[in-house]
């Protein structure tokens, strides 16, 4: 069996990079004495995979990781033991025992929800929103390993609303294409004609193609 774990990465922990987070989680699993599995070979490593890395500075309210277990375990017992080894702000929120054959969370991932709380300019952004979304395409420069290339943001925005003092976005997040929330903010600000404000971003959910959370396969 394998265990899918939903965890948070809030507050100052948003500054931990992805590699550092991987290491921190591996060590927490080891401290907790959970029945983890290791790769074969001369330098064995703990088997643990993450649904999607989170950019440094962005909070995660319901992030997802998965690990194969060496023996069966109750979800609640797993959760309790892991949480005893995790610091505040980096707690596990749910554990879900899955069949080994369930496709990996990373492969099932299709979209993510974000909330963006700009420090200022909310009114201007609200006014610009309908026109912004009415555009047929929203070109932007995408920086990748192969250098800078032109890409279109519009088809990657599934939903975007403003309420309760924050932007709420549903963005594509999969191997076929992803939109970054900071890019969304940059493009929206450009369209609204305002400088990009400081903005706290939180990823609130990781969803599959049915737009259901990954922990409900």
């Amino acid at each position: 069996m394998k265990m899918l774990v939903v965890y948070e990465k809030m507050g100052p922990h948003r500054f931990i990079g992805h590699l550092d987070l991987q290491r921190a989680m591996q060590r927490a699993l080891r401290r907790a004495g959970l029945p983890v599995r290791y790769s074969q070979g001369f330098n064995p490593h703990l088997l643990l995979s993450f649904a999607a890395p989170l950019s440094v500075g962005v909070q995660g309210a319901r992030e997802v990781m998965e690990l194969p277990l060496a023996r069966e375990m109750e979800e609640q017992a797993f959760l309790d033991r892991l949480n005893a080894a995790l610091p505040e702000g980096l707690k596990a929120l749910a554990a879900r025992a899955l069949e080994e054959e369930t496709p990996p969370a990373m492969a099932r991932l299709q979209a993510a929800r974000y909330t963006l709380k700009p420090e200022e300019g909310l009114e201007a952004l609200g006014q610009a929103l309908p026109g912004f979304l009415a555009q047929a395409s929203i070109p932007f420069e995408k920086r990748g390993k192969a250098g800078v290339r032109q890409a279109d943001l519009r088809p990657l925005i599934h939903d975007l609303q403003l309420h309760g003092g924050a932007l709420h976005a549903l963005l594509a997040l999969s191997e076929q294409g992803s939109a970054r929330p900071d890019q969304l903010l940059a493009s929206l600000c450009e369209y609204a004609g305002i400088p990009r404000p400081r903005c706290l971003i939180t990823r609130t959910a990781l969803l599959d193609k049915r737009l259901l959370p990954l922990e409900q396969p």
Partner: peptide, 19 residues
């Protein structure tokens, strides 16, 4: 907080480590 968003490897200034 605003400063930490702009510097390299901000996690080295936040504390809150295990132990």
């Amino acid at each position: 907080e605003a400063l930490l968003e702009t510097v390299q490897r901000p996690a080295r200034y936040t504390g809150g480590e295990v132990n």
